[in-house]
Design a protein around this nucleic acid. Structure first.
Lengths: 164, 164
DNA sequence: TGTAAACTAATGACATGTCATTTAAAATGA
DNA sequence: TCATTTTAAATGACATGTCATTAGTTTACA
C-alpha cells in the first residue's frame, strides 16, 4: 500500500522533506492563529508588520519600508494605499526629493499599535508554554545558518532578528 | 536611538519574537528558492504539492485532496481547474456519488512529476549542506509539539510527516 | 547644458489564500 | 414519500504576493 511505504522511510531525504513541510506548516499555522486575533481589531498580518516597522522607524520611505518588511518585496504601494485609506498611516511626498514618499503612523495607527503589541504578547505566551527559551534560541541559531546565505538576512538584521 | 534599544534586548519575549520571524523568513525563503526552480518547468509550488499528493493517492476526491494539502484549505476548485486546463490532471465526476469529483494525474502530470522530484532532491541537497540530519530531526520534533495541538496535524499525519 | 542612466513609486496582470455564500446531490428521519 | 439536513464542489469578493512594465524625478557625465 502506497501510503504505508512512505510511512517507514527513514532516509535523510525523508527527514529533509519532513523538515521542509513542518516549517511550512508551522509558519502557516502561526500565521493563521495570529490572523484570527488581528482580524478582531480589523487588520491583517501584513498590516500589523507595517505598523510595527513604522512605529520603530518612522518617518520612513516606501523603499526603506519594503526593505524591512518580510511580507512583501519591492515597493509595497498597494498595501500602504489601503492602510492610508483605512486611516492607519499618513503619507506625503518628500520635499527634498520628490521620488520619495514618506510614511508615518497616524493617531489611529498608534492606537492600534498598542492592541497589536498585546495580541503579539499573548501569542508569544502561547509559544512559551510549548517551547522553552533555550529551544527557541536553538531553532533561531540553526535556521540562521540558512538565512545568512541569502539577501533576506539584510532584512532580518535591519529588524534586529539576526546578528551580524 | 530606537533601533539600538531593541538590538540589545535579550528578554524571552524577544527570543520568541525572533523565533516567529525567523520561522516566517525561513519558510518564505525556502518557498521562493523552490518557486524559482518550479517556474523553470512551468508550475507553482502549490501545483507541485498537488501533483505529489495525486501521485501517491490517486484517484482522489477534491475534498480528500483539500485535507492533504498544506497550501490551501477547503475545496481547492480553482487551483485544480487551472491544472486541468494546463493538462496536468484529469478530473471526472464519481459515478457512485455525483457530489464527488475524482482526480488523477494525466500523462503530462506524470512526466512533470519526475521533474518535480529532481528539483526537490536538489533543494534537499542544499538543505543537507547546511543542516545535519540530527539538526533537522531536532527541529522537526520540536516544532511538532506545536503542530500536534491543532487540526493541521491531521494533514501532516495524512502525509506521513508526523507520527501518531 | 542636455542627454542618458539610475532611482522611487505606481500600476498591470495573474495566481494564491481566505472566508462566506450558493448550488446540487445524497442521507436522514418523520 | 417528502421535507430537512448534511455533504461536496463551485463561486464571489477581497487581500496578498510576484514579476514585469511604466511614469516621474534626480544624478551623472560628456
Amino acid at each position: 500500500m502506497k501510503g504505508e511505504v512512505s510511512k517507514i522511510r527513514q532516509d535523510s531525504s525523508y527527514v529533509t522533506e519532513q523538515f521542509r513541510y513542518i516549517i511550512l506548516a508551522t509558519q502557516r499555522l502561526g500565521s493563521r492563529l495570529l490572523q484570527e486575533e488581528y482580524k478582531k481589531i480589523g487588520i491583517s498580518s501584513s498590516q500589523s508588520e507595517v505598523i510595527q516597522v513604522l512605529k520603530e522607524w518612522e518617518p520612513i520611505s516606501l523603499k526603506k519600508l519594503g526593505e524591512l518588511l518580510l511580507c512583501e518585496e519591492g515597493s509595497p504601494s498597494r498595501l500602504i494605499d489601503r492602510m492610508v485609506k483605512a486611516g492607519f498611516i499618513n503619507k506625503y511626498r518628500s520635499e527634498e526629493d520628490s521620488r520619495y514618499v514618506l510614511l508615518e503612523l497616524s493617531e489611529k495607527g498608534r492606537e492600534i499599535y498598542e492592541k497589536i503589541v498585546r495580541i503579539d504578547q499573548e501569542f508569544y505566551k502561547k509559544l512559551e508554554n510549548i517551547f522553552s527559551e533555550d529551544e527557541m534560541k536553538q531553532v533561531n541559531q540553526l535556521l540562521s545558518k540558512f538565512l545568512m546565505r541569502y539577501p533576506v538576512c539584510q532584512t532580518l538584521r535591519g529588524r534586529n532578528f539576526l546578528e551580524k
